[in-house]
Design a protein around this nucleic acid. Structure first.
Length: 545
RNA sequence: GGUCUAUUAGUCAAGGGGUCAAGACGCUGCCCUCUCAAGGCAGAAACACGGGUUCAAAUCCCGUAUAGACUACCA
């Protein structure tokens, strides 16, 4: 009895070899500089901001080098799988323009290295595991869950390292005949990797983001194939897939850092060159005094649906992530305002070494800048699309008179330093409601310095006599004349020199007009608002006073 | 418990033996100004702690503290 017989007993139907798969998936025809990266989420029915962050980093790295970015669906955990999760992932990537070159979606495989769904690669994994059994680097383990739990508790009590290693690895010591007999008797088993490492040995490892590290050699016999569905664990699938798919750089969250030694040992067992690794910091969240991983249960902003519901432009989310991915992005962006973020060169070594707080304030700032640079048409289109999905009331306002809506959006837009007051589309309605008669039922008028109703009426009446809106300069001149006539300073400088000589100044007068018209003391440019209203509506609003 | 990693303003961060310790968001003030937003200018605000090495330490070394990740038939 030997390993080969054991391998055949466990995988009787596997007749391909590793060499066969090397031929089916030949090395990619790329030059050395071109990088191959991937986004490999597990389909749990939820798109996390951290996922987009990972995807974007991988995408940027590949695209910078004119390489390949592909999507792989890691669905080996049938218990956690959620229907339509793949759809959500694909659609989110598409919306954010992080489109993979190779992927598998709705039955269609794009790319020569598929299938890109792990559950469809069972035969491949089995071939590789069979090989490992043949060369004595993997073995069946018959320890049950209870047995392992018990072992772990014992290890914890004795303050030993937990895990299946050394003397604790019982099944490692089983003779080949015994193994074969147990398999024949249909005892349930998993396949474990046979580690040859020594935990006391340190091995140097260079991570492209974290730099040089020293890690303890792996000595744990990890499960590489699960008993319930015969699918591989993450660790093993990573080896096989990233080797066959020709991944040059594995960019993943730093939660994987402790397992690189496992991965390196497995690559070595096959005689494969491991890829380069880039372990990225985690997105974290400050919760009172604690710092923790951003969590989907506690933090609404962890989910990509949050940004969609609030109506942030996709680009704003992308750019806010870029500032976290490489903090020099912002500086680059201010120096190159006309370039697209995809022109930026991402450098792994410039990544932060610790976790980054995802700052919603910063997002708002980035978003305001982006929206302020959009044309009124673009803002209209995007905000309308948002309203159709999330706000019936805004949708109705827009549909009532599209041109009027666009004109409102255009106030102080087409100028050198455009207005920056919209951070997200859900802000819009609260910024423009007073421009609509059907919404204009103010509970209180935010009068400024002038609060006397008689004086207010005098100002409004006098203003209407001289009503003029042809030209902004001339209009303001008229307001100044009005101020003079009623005893207010028409010029701010004069007023500041001798405030006691006047009842107030032209700003106070303008405020009266503004508040009478909008009920608010802070609005965009008054002249633009007057023009949009027209004489009749102005009169109507004045009449309410 | 063990392994690994980290710690510069409220936040993101540059700097890797000699700097008045960058910059951005936020905050405060001033200017501009018909209000607000924007813009311009200015300001407050930081090297976790303790030892060492050195003429010189935020920077190198050693401890301590704190935080995070991992320690699954989850990824």
């Amino acid at each position: 009895m030997n390993n080969k017989e054991l391998a055949n007993l466990i995988f009787p139907d596997i007749d391909k070899t590793i060499e066969d798969y090397k031929k089916i998936y030949p090395k990619r025809n790329l030059d050395k500089k071109q990088k191959v990266t991937r986004f490999a989420p597990s389909p749990t029915g939820y798109m996390h901001i951290g996922g987009v962050y990972q995807a974007l980093t991988n995408y940027m790295f590949a695209k910078n080098s004119n390489g390949i970015f592909y999507l792989r669906n890691e669905d080996t955990d049938s218990a956690r799988e959620v229907e339509n999760a793949t759809k959500l992932i694909m659609e989110t990537l598409k919306e954010y323009n992080i489109t993979p070159d190779e992927y598998e979606y709705q039955g269609e495989i794009v790319g020569n290295y598929g299938p890109y769904v792990q559950s469809e690669r069972k035969e491949i994994y089995h071939t590789f595991i069979k090989h490992l059994i043949e060369i004595g680097r993997a073995y069946p383990c018959f320890c049950g869950k209870d047995q392992l739990d018990e072992m772990r508790t014992r290890q914890e009590e004795r303050k030993k390292r937990t895990g299946y290693y050394g003397a604790y690895a019982k099944c490692k010591k089983l003779g080949i005949d015994e193994q074969i007999e147990k398999v024949r008797n249909k005892e349930p088993y998993v396949i474990r990797f046979r580690s040859k490492g020594n935990f006391e040995n340190k091995i140097p490892f260079e991570d492209l983001a974290k730099g040089k590290l020293s890690l303890s050699e792996n000595d744990i016999d990890d499960v590489i194939m699960k008993s319930d569905n015969m699918l591989p664990t993450y660790h093993f699938a990573h080896i096989v897939d990233d080797y066959l798919m020709g991944t040059t750089h594995v960019i993943r969250g730093e939660e994987w850092l402790p397992s690189v030694t496992k991965h390196i040992e497995m690559f070595e067992a096959f005689g494969f060159e491991p890829p380069q690794y880039i372990h990225t910091p985690l997105l974290i969240k400050k919760d009172g005094d604690n710092i923790r991983k951003i969590s989907k249960r506690k933090d609404p902003e962890a989910s990509m649906t949050y940004y969609d519901e609030k109506g942030y432009p996709k680009l704003a989310v992308i750019e806010s992530l870029m500032t976290i991915i490489n903090s020099n992005y912002e500086e680059w962006h201010t120096k190159n305002p006309d370039k697209k973020y995809t022109d930026f060169i991402y450098s792994p070594d410039k990544m932060s070494s610790s976790g980054a707080l995802y700052d919603l304030m910063k997002l708002d700032d980035i978003s305001k800048n982006i929206i302020s640079k959009m044309t009124k048409e673009e803002v209209y289109e995007e905000s309308y699309a948002w309203a159709c999905k999330y706000s019936d009331s805004l949708k109705k306002l827009i549909e009532k008179d599209v041109d009027y809506y666009k004109a409102i959006l255009n106030i102080e837009r087409e100028q050198k330093n455009p207005r920056k007051d919209i951070a997200k589309y859900s802000d819009i309605e609260s910024l423009i409601w007073y421009m609509y008669d059907e919404l204009f039922h103010p509970e209180n008028y935010e009068w400024g310095k002038i609060t006397d109703l008689d004086e207010i009426r005098t100002i409004l009446n006098t203003y209407m006599e001289k009503y003029y809106t042809e030209d902004k300069e001339e209009w303001f001149h008229q307001v100044q004349l009005l101020a003079d006539e009623l005893g207010y300073a028409s010029n701010m400088k004069d007023f500041k020199k001798n405030p006691e000589m006047y009842k107030g100044n032209v700003a106070d007068v303008a405020t009266v007009i503004r508040v009478a018209l909008t009920s608010k003391c802070q609005t965009p440019d008054l002249y633009e608002i007057l023009k949009l209203f027209g004489e009749d509506r102005i009169k109507e609003r004045f009449a309410k006073i």
